[in-house]
Design a binder for these strands. Structure first.
Lengths: 225, 225
DNA sequence: TACACATTTCTGGTATACAAAAATCCATAG
DNA sequence: CTATGGATTTTTGTATACCAGAAATGTGTA
């Protein structure tokens, strides 16, 4: 499943990072000539990179009309969060059953880090630690296929998820939920870990409205795409 | 997320079909020149198609060493079935809650078709009907993202799943499980539908050994890939 | 001024040419 | 007879050139 040529691989990583971290925003145009000039390569590896990214859903290419950073519909957003919650819940269930002691230590450390960062009210730093916390759980499920699958969906939701944490109070609540999840995992309570993680990730009811309210114009495309 | 040029899209569909239906087997080499000659196009769309397929995991390309139909390790197989069971269970749960009456009628019809085909002991025809049965449930979850995700994993497992049904008695058992799942969905019992579907799809214990025993040489690669 | 149509221009899709790495083959030496 | 080394060949990775289709622009007429 490994990617193609080295140039294309580098491009994929660079662009992926820019999209996930928000440097490139949903709707931004990615034209092949600019990218090839900017990176000093020909159009061929650029196209390969864009196709790879299209395959993972991070960009969308309309035939004869170029490619843009993927912007999804509200319906897509809801659907993807629904799946994301389930995938993370599965990771948490398996992690509760399979994580080694040393991994749990790491999770505890990251949980503490999240706690201190939360008190300092640094949303961006918290976001980083939060990502790490979740990734340790992905790894803890001991199913590398599930781990990849989960990360892929997470990346696609990253531009939207990032917005959540800038809501007042969300960081604190998120951190409290982490503690509970951590407890469930370290005591090996798979069902509880899964249930808590599902609630932690799912975006339902008011939370959904709140999220939609702060999504910038252009991040979402009209339903009639 | 739509694919690139028309030629590449056609190639993707053709190759995908050949891989999923078993015309092309895991480990088969796919060299660009042969394919381009065989389909009367240049190497460019061929490469695009292969990259797209690599993105969905159906083929594997090693840098500078060409691409083959993906063959996975035993560990991968186990992991993927674990995820597959969960995805299908989620589909079933949601389907039980969301399927419309007309969809359920369709599901009943397909269930019956599976039943008659099972009595005729036609494994290949049953396989087709079985695929349809499951796809109606995928669609019934009313989450197109989950549907795509599930189909993708199913396609990747297709070469191995197909082997299962050629085991004596498996078809009959499978059909009985369908009936139960159908009942759970039509009565709206989401939890039961999910649990039954999970058991239906999961490959555990003896069933796993049975499956591994009939996987032909070359379908699986050594763990040290 | 607004709209319709033609032309131009720009961008993406495809083909081909070239370069570099790997696999193969053959010869030669042990 | 086998193994090793290098030359050859094959195949992939990259660049470039060419073509086609869609958007943008400009012009003329109502």
């Amino acid at each position: 499943m490994s990617r193609n040529g080295k140039l294309a691989t580098d491009l994929v990583q660079k662009l992926e990072r820019d999209i996930v971290t928000g440097v490139l925003k949903p709707g931004d145009k990615l034209d092949e000539r600019s990218l090839s000039e900017r990176f000093g390569v020909s159009r061929t590896p650029v196209r390969e990179a864009l196709q790879t990214l299209a395959g993972s859903g991070l960009v969308a290419t309309m035939p004869r009309r170029g490619t843009i950073v993927a912007s999804i519909t509200v319906a897509d957003l809801i659907e993807m969060f629904e799946v994301m919650a389930e995938l993370e819940a599965m990771c948490a269930r398996l992690a509760a059953r399979r994580m080694a002691r040393t991994d749990i230590e790491k999770l505890i450390a990251l949980g503490n880090e999240c706690g201190t960062l939360q008190e300092h009210a640094d949303a961006d730093a918290y976001y980083e630690a939060n990502v790490n916390f979740h990734e340790v759980i992905y790894a803890g499920c001991r199913n590398s296929f599930l781990e990849r699958q989960t990360k892929n969906v997470r990346n696609r939701l990253a531009p939207y998820r990032r917005l959540q944490l800038h809501r007042p109070g969300r960081v604190k609540k998120s951190n409290a939920e982490h503690s509970e999840i951590l407890d469930a995992i370290s005591t090996g309570d798979a069902e509880r870990a899964g249930r808590l993680m599902h609630q932690h990730v799912a975006v339902q009811g008011e939370a959904l409205n709140d999220l939609l309210a702060i999504v910038p114009r252009g991040y979402l495309e009209p339903l009639a795409s």
